[in-house]
Amino acid sequence: MSANASTFSVTILEKEYQVACPPDQQAELLLSARHLDEQMRAIRSTGKVIGLERIAVMAALNISHELLQTRNGVSTGNAKDSGKANATAEKSGEVADPAGLSSLNAKLDEALHQLRQLEIG
């Protein structure tokens, strides 16, 4: 970190963290912390993932997935293709899932289930 970085406090899942950050990036830090907190709360609320570390890893995976989709233009750049997928899904009465998030979530759920089985055994 640069010499002009200050320490700022962020709260994530009722825990306070001190983070070094340049003053001109404090707003982005607070937005990032809020986004992470929301992601972690959503994961915790499902009751499928137990433990702060595992919740944090799952949130990191979800956020990384979103970032990669955005970089690859899946979420923002392919509006034309997404529109076609949404229109097709609406006609068939399904919910569109152009990014395959349902499949990814199912795989993650299965991996967590297997991990729990290993811990129990």
Score class of each variant (00 low, 15 high):
Ala3Thr: 12
Ala3Cys: 08
Asn4Trp: 03
Ala5Phe: 01
Ser6Gln: 09
Thr7Leu: 09
Thr7Lys: 15
Ile12Ala: 04
Glu14Arg: 09
Glu14Asp: 15
Glu16Gly: 10
Gln18Glu: 07
Val19Lys: 00
Cys21Met: 06
Asp24His: 11
Gln25Phe: 11
Gln26Tyr: 03
Glu28Met: 10
Ser32Pro: 03
Ala33Pro: 11
Arg34Ile: 12
His35Phe: 09
Leu36Ile: 08
Asp37Glu: 07
Asp37His: 07
Glu38Phe: 15
Met40Glu: 12
Met40Trp: 09
Ile43Gly: 10
Ile43Asn: 05
Lys48Gln: 10
Gly51Asp: 04
Leu52Pro: 07
Ile55Arg: 00
Val57Ile: 12
Val57Asp: 02
Val57Ser: 03
Leu61Asn: 11
Ile63Arg: 02
Ser64Glu: 12
Ser64His: 06
Ser64Asn: 12
Leu67Cys: 09
Leu68Val: 05
Gln69Val: 02
Arg71Ala: 12
Arg71Ser: 07
Val74His: 05
Val74Asp: 08
Ser75Thr: 13
Gly77Gln: 06
Asn78His: 08
Lys80Asp: 14
Ala87Gly: 02
Thr88Asn: 13
Thr88Met: 15
Ala89Met: 04
Glu90Ser: 09
Val95Thr: 06
Val95Trp: 03
Ala96Phe: 02
Asp97Ala: 04
Ala99Trp: 01
Ser102Asn: 11
Ser103Trp: 05
Ser103Pro: 07
Leu104His: 11
Leu104Gln: 14
Lys107Asp: 13
Lys107Arg: 12
Leu108Cys: 04
Ala111Arg: 11
His113Asp: 11
His113Gln: 07
Leu115Trp: 05
Gln117Lys: 10
Ile120Arg: 03
Gly121Ala: 03
